[in-house]
């Protein structure tokens, strides 16, 4: 092809960014938890799935009670965020806190077990079928001219996640809790010596990470309009990949990693073959890690002896 089809390029870019925003929202949870206790929280994808389910159930109840659609979306989102925070908090207390001083791999296995448990918990308590997620996002009139590039749900995803990430960045940077979190991530022992309650910080990390995942869950479910108990698994792995791509432990890294991964997949599907979409995503990950072994924005740790 001699000249580039810019319209097509833009289409792919926008859908890549949309997907990337979701990955980024989930990846933030991975990266924050990793930054503080060096644990790959495999159950994080399930928290995202729980968020989508809670949102759906709340929407169902409110729908019967006759609420307006936008109201349902907002209340559903808020309830999902609250519940997911509670789930994140509880999962940490049950599966990871007793393992604080164990070898590094034990909590990892506990997390895999938790992930299997939560999936089946939802499958048995709810259903193994796919459920339709109501289309709660209004059609914005100003999006009409570019409707083939950006759908309303895509627009809401990009706006909401940018907003959430901006708030998170400010929170981490300026609040007392955010500073304490950064201190704990840098050096837990030192932070404890300075009077920071590390248990509280870890709980807070899980709560914030899960809340972000819940936002991602509700947004993506409104976008694809269907959920089942299994949606967390693939999204979780992709988000984890994004977190590593950006440099695990780094919050801007997770955001960048998510968007880079989303765009990679989108361009691979658009220009090459969607058959090998995942392969390109992982191949790029491997290439980046070969040249930047700590990810895009991760700081290379100098091992001190």
């Amino acid at each position: 092809m001699a000249d580039i089809d810019w319209h097509y390029f833009l289409e792919l870019l926008v859908s890549g960014v949309t997907k990337g925003c979701i990955y980024a929202l989930i990846a933030l949870g991975y990266t924050m938890v990793y930054g503080i206790i060096e644990l790959i929280n495999f159950a994080h994808g399930e928290v995202y799935m729980l968020g989508a389910f809670t949102g759906l159930i709340v929407a169902g109840v409110l729908g019967v009670m006759g609420f307006p659609e936008t109201g349902i979306l907002l209340i559903g989102g808020v309830v999902a965020v609250i519940y997911c925070s509670a789930y994140g908090f509880t999962v940490e207390k049950i599966a990871y806190k007793p393992l604080r001083n164990a070898t590094r791999l034990s909590p990892l296995i506990s997390a895999i077990g938790m992930s299997i448990f939560l999936q089946n918990y939802v499958r048995i308590a709810q259903t193994q079928d796919f459920l339709r997620y109501p289309n709660l996002i209004p059609d914005f009139a100003f999006l009409e001219p570019i409707s083939d590039i950006l759908r309303p749900s895509g627009f809401v995803i990009i706006v909401t996640s940018s907003l959430v990430m901006a708030v998170l960045t400010l929170f981490i940077k300026y609040t007392r809790l955010g500073k304490a979190m950064r201190a704990t991530a840098q050096n837990r022992k030192m932070a404890m010596l300075l009077g920071i309650d590390s248990d509280r910080i870890i709980s807070a990390t899980f709560i914030i990470g899960s809340a972000l995942a819940a936002v991602g869950g509700v947004l993506i479910a409104s976008h694809t309009q269907q959920i089942n108990f299994n949606i967390g698994f693939l999204a979780g792995i992709k988000a984890f990949t994004a977190a590593v791509l950006g440099g695990i432990g780094s919050i801007p890294g997770a955001m960048l990693g998510g968007i880079v991964l989303g765009c990679c997949e989108s361009f691979a599907a658009g220009y090459l073959s969607s058959d090998y979409e995942d392969m390109f995503a992982f191949a790029i990950l491997i290439l980046i890690l070969i040249f930047r072994p700590s990810g895009l924005l991760g700081k290379a740790k100098v091992q001190k002896v």
Binding site: Y8, L12, K19, I22, Y23, T224, I231, L234, A269, S274
Partner: peptide, 20 residues
Amino acid sequence: FDGLTPGGVDYTPIIQKIAR
């Protein structure tokens, strides 16, 4: 002629490619 990943987050690029 192509395949997609079941359970994937978004299939928009594939539809775009087909449209094209």
